[in-house]
Every structure is written in structure tokens, then in C-alpha cells.
Design a protein around this nucleic acid. Structure first.
Lengths: 165, 165
DNA sequence: TCGACTGATTGCGATTTGCAACTGGTTGTA
DNA sequence: TACAACCAGTTGCAAATCGCAATCAGTCGA
């Protein structure tokens, strides 16, 4: 990551932080896959990132204030990565990107179902999911709610497609 | 651009098409700056893309069906690049990215004003602007409207900041 | 005819990427 | 206590990509 920026345009600045093939995929896995450890991000992702790239991107995302890292009390070597508020607010970007990809690219059925639900749910569903992320990543308490969470609903939809196969 | 994809995830597929530092900036300039020729995209952008990268990205975007190219009748060598519907529908992605960058990154005042207006305008303004793009890039006729277009309003806001300096 | 302009292409060094192997340490189990 | 499995990274190296500068051939207006 270079220190000097090409321009002060918000889109350009965002791309200088996120405009590579992996950063947003890591954030996607933290958001939708609840991956919080290095190993989980390394091995449980669809795309198979290599460890040096993962280490490098996590470092950059830390520097940029998009994620944080703290020690896992259950294991001296484990670190737990969490999204910051800034990271959580990338959800609309990912959601729009997912909706566009779902509409125009050859998305697989099982991986597209979440994009569809998220797209159909609109801004209101995104806000609800972001609140859930604030609870699980920032420790912010939420009002009690009824029924399954957005995260659970997305997961259930995914598994129902996978099971049918 | 590789032909084989890492996964069928919509976010991953979108990133394989757009996940580099330049593609979305080219689309941004076509959308908001009304740049339609190679030369315009090459020299009138804030960031200064080099000509080989621009040529390569335009080719990729053509292949992906995000833009089209046709000959300019006024000059046998000039081509006019236009956004397709698929390209126009990247507006929400760019708008969300601009909003996020505007909120969290050191955006310059003159280049941030459009992001702010676009963000405040919300989905309704985006839809209106996309309709204008359909008219100027796809030749789709629109119903007559009153007052300045979204594109004109964005441009006016930008110039008012630049002039004040 | 000429100089400026058009959309590119080429050569080349610097940077980034991706794979595989490896490091130093921790944990659970016997 | 011994040991295999697991943990978060690091290192070396080859290949691909990036980015700058120079260049190219066709076209236009004077």
C-alpha cells in the first residue's frame, strides 16, 4: 500500500484501500462466514487464499482501521479478528456488489442465495444485519428481538440449497 | 483477466471483473465526468492512468459487456465508449463506495461534494441519475422533466466548490 | 505538405502475486 | 514427559502484472 494517494476522490481512496482481489473477500468471510481466526480465514474460504497474502492483507486492514485484533484467551497463539464500525459499514458496498454479480455473472446457486436474500431485503435488512455485526464484533448490546437473526436466516437459506443437492 | 474463476460467489465474481485499481475509476469517469473517448479518459482524469493500462482495461470491460465501443462519425480513428445497462447498474456500487470513502477517508473538499450529494440523495436520486445515463449512453428516451438534471446538479456543486478556492 | 492529434503498442524495470516449504511456539493426549 | 497436531505467521523464488516513457501508423485541419 503506497502512502501517497493518487487523488482525493472518495472512490479512488476507497479503491486504494480495498481495490484488490482479496481484501473484500476477507471482509466478506468475516461478515457472512463468521471467520475470526487466521486459520479459519485461510482454510475455510471458497477461494483458497495463500497465507502470505492473508497475513499481508490483515496487516493492511488493521492499519486502515477496518478490523482489530485481540488475543484469544483460550489459546495463547490465537488471535481474534473483529470488524470495526468502519468495517461493518462496508456491508452496503458488499451487498451492492453481490447484487450486481448475482444479476450479471455466472453465480452458483448455493452461493447466490444469500446475495438474493440480501438484495431483496434492501436497506432495512442491511441495517438489521449491521446491528447484529455490532453485537458480535463490537460487543454492543442489542434490544431483544424475536425470531431468527438475519445471520441465521442467511445461513439457513444457504444450507437448504446445499442439502438439496 | 483469467478465464477460470476461483468460486461462484457473486462477490468474488464481481471482484474478478472489477477488483483492480483502475476499472472502477474508468467507469466513474464515464459516469460522472462524461468521458467517452480514449484521449479524454487518458488525460482528463485526476489520477493519470497510463495508456497501456487504459487500453487493456477498456478491452476487458468490452469483453465483460460493461461498456461498448462504436466509431465516432466525425473522426475515423475516434471511438465512442458507452456504458451498457450492466455498466450503468454499477452506479449503486460506486455510490456506496463513495459514501464509505467520504465518511472514513481523507477526501478532498472539491471531490467529496459529489459523494455527499449522491449519498444524501439516496436510492431515488441514483435511479434518476441512472435514467439519465440510459438516455446519454443507450439512447433511451426519457419523459420530459423539469429543472436541472442530476448530472448537471452534481457538476454545478463541484464547480461551486472549485470556484470558491 | 506538414504539424498536431487520434487510439493504441512496445520495451523494460519495478512491484505484486501465488505457491510451497518452513519457523517457532502452543495444546491436547497418552 | 514425549509427541503429534495445531497455531499464526515468515521466507524464498518464479511468474504475472504494473507503470512509465517512447514510439507507431493512420487521420485531420491548415
Amino acid at each position: 500500500m503506497t502512502d501517497i494517494s493518487r487523488s482525493g476522490c472518495p472512490i479512488n481512496l476507497s479503491l486504494e484501500v480495498l481495490g484488490d482481489k482479496w481484501s473484500l473477500l476477507i471482509i466478506r468471510d468475516m461478515m457472512f462466514g463468521n471467520r475470526r481466526h487466521f486459520r479459519e480465514l485461510l482454510t475455510k474460504s471458497e477461494e483458497g487464499i495463500s497465507s502470505n497474502i492473508l497475513a499481508d492483507r490483515l496487516k493492511t486492514l488493521l492499519d486502515e482501521g477496518i478490523i482489530t485484533r485481540e488475543d484469544d484467551p483460550t489459546h495463547k497463539q490465537k488471535g481474534i479478528y473483529s470488524l470495526t464500525e468502519q468495517g461493518i459499514e462496508l456491508l452496503p458496498v458488499l451487498a451492492q456488489m453481490a447484487a450486481w454479480g448475482y444479476k450479471y455473472l455466472p453465480v452458483s446457486e448455493e452461493l447466490g442465495i444469500r446475495a438474493r436474500l440480501l438484495s431483496e431485503g434492501g436497506a432495512k435488512l442491511w441495517a438489521e444485519f449491521m446491528d447484529e455485526l455490532r453485537e458480535s464484533h463490537l460487543g454492543v448490546k442489542r434490544r431483544k428481538r424475536t425470531g431468527p437473526s438475519v445471520g441465521e436466516r442467511l445461513q439457513a437459506a444457504y444450507e437448504s440449497v446445499v442439502k438439496r443437492k
